[in-house]
């Protein structure tokens, strides 16, 4: 694991410029947040193809749809709350229904927004976007994964939602060489006791959970799931067959996002009866966020290795509870 840290939105700003050079028909739209979403880097390089739409996200998404109908690729950015939330219906009716070539790249998703609090901490966007027919939904885990997701989105003909966070994250995937395809899911560490599937900012947390169990002689498989829709059926199937429990970790409500997608996949695979698998969903438990530092918030909402380990033990091997070394 690399020690250097980088915010996904910084990677987004960089890859936009790279893609702007590759695609002369690429436009980037923003809604008065160019310095936060980092579309400002594209604006400096290609002022003619950057359009600030002002604080009017609904209009921006429909403008994006209109631009895309003129044979252009459009990236439209705002905070997740206002992109997926405020402009949900424009995304649904003007972008997705006609399958227009618009990439909604939403930054500042989830509790890790921190001090701004609940009004800015979107914990529902994956659910909103996943429910729209034809929408591809991505939640990359670091800067390399963000760049790969954006390169994939630019290549792909149709609507894509990409969810990014605010915080710097450890750089795990190579920014130049990591490749991305539909249904992407990466087993980053193998194991046979339980499978931790995470998306977004939780590589470190997932690895901490793994280390805790390793100290106790148990191996946790860790899977990075940057493609929430379509969901990779194979990794879920393997998790069911190879391990005793699946744990999903996401900076999102446990309803509607990764946890739901995995639950649906388990149910549809219809093999859980033959091989019972516990599902533990770590996320906001049908709650709004709060103000605080991201670190404090994550602890308060149960995103710590200890809290997660306790849930896994209680579900899979309660008899081990007293002996487990934290």
């Amino acid at each position: 694991m690399a020690d250097n840290m980088k915010a996904q939105r910084d990677a987004y700003g960089e890859v936009l410029v790279e893609l702007g050079k590759k695609y002369p028909n690429m436009f980037v739209l923003d809604a008065d947040l160019t310095k936060s979403t980092k579309t400002v880097t594209f604006q400096k390089e290609f002022p003619k193809r950057h359009i600030n739409c002002g604080i009017a996200e609904g209009n921006m998404m429909a403008v994006a749809a209109g631009i895309s109908t003129c044979d252009n690729i459009v990236f439209a950015s705002s905070f997740a709350m206002f992109a997926a939330g405020r402009a949900y219906e424009q995304i649904r009716n003007s972008i997705c229904y006609p399958h227009n070539n618009v990439k909604v790249v939403a930054t500042h998703a989830g509790l890790t927004v921190g001090e701004d609090g609940a009004t800015h901490q979107c914990l529902e966007d994956l659910g909103l976007m996943r429910s729209i027919p034809g929408m591809v939904v991505l939640a990359p885990s670091d800067s390399g994964s963000t760049k790969a997701a954006c390169r994939f989105a630019a290549e792909y003909d149709g609507p894509v939602y990409i969810r990014l966070g605010r915080l710097p994250l450890p750089c795990v995937n190579d920014e130049e060489n990591y490749k991305f395809e539909l249904g992407q899911a990466d087993v980053v560490a193998d194991g046979d006791f339980a499978t931790v599937m995470f998306c977004g900012p939780f590589y470190s947390l997932a690895m901490e959970v793994r280390e805790l169990f390793a100290k106790n002689g148990l191996n946790i498989r860790v899977v990075d799931v940057p493609c929430i829709k379509p969901m990779n059926q194979e990794v879920v199937k393997n998790a069911i067959y190879d391990t005793k429990a699946i744990v999903t970790i996401e900076d999102h409500n446990i309803y509607g996002g990764l946890g739901s997608a995995v639950a649906e996949t388990i149910a549809e695979l219809n093999i859980s009866n033959r091989r019972p698998t516990e599902l533990i969903r770590i996320g906001a438990e049908d709650k709004f966020g709060k103000s605080g530092s991201p670190k404090e918030l994550l602890a308060a909402y149960g995103f710590t290795a200890e809290a997660i380990a306790k849930k896994i033990i209680a579900a899979v091997c309660p008899e081990f509870e007293g002996e487990f070394k934290f």
């Binding site: 028909n25 436009f27 003619k48 193809r49 359009i51 609904g58 209009n59 998404m61 429909a62 403008v63 994006a64 749809a65 209109g66 631009i67 895309s68 109908t69 003129c70 252009n72 219906e89 424009q90 009716n93 003007s94 229904y97 006609p98």
Partner: peptide, 24 residues
Amino acid sequence: DMSTGSLGQGISTACGMAVSGKRL
């Protein structure tokens, strides 16, 4: 040229087509 039906959205998409024409 555009799927419409949800009132208020079509005019925004028309703006998108127009701004694309201007910029290109």
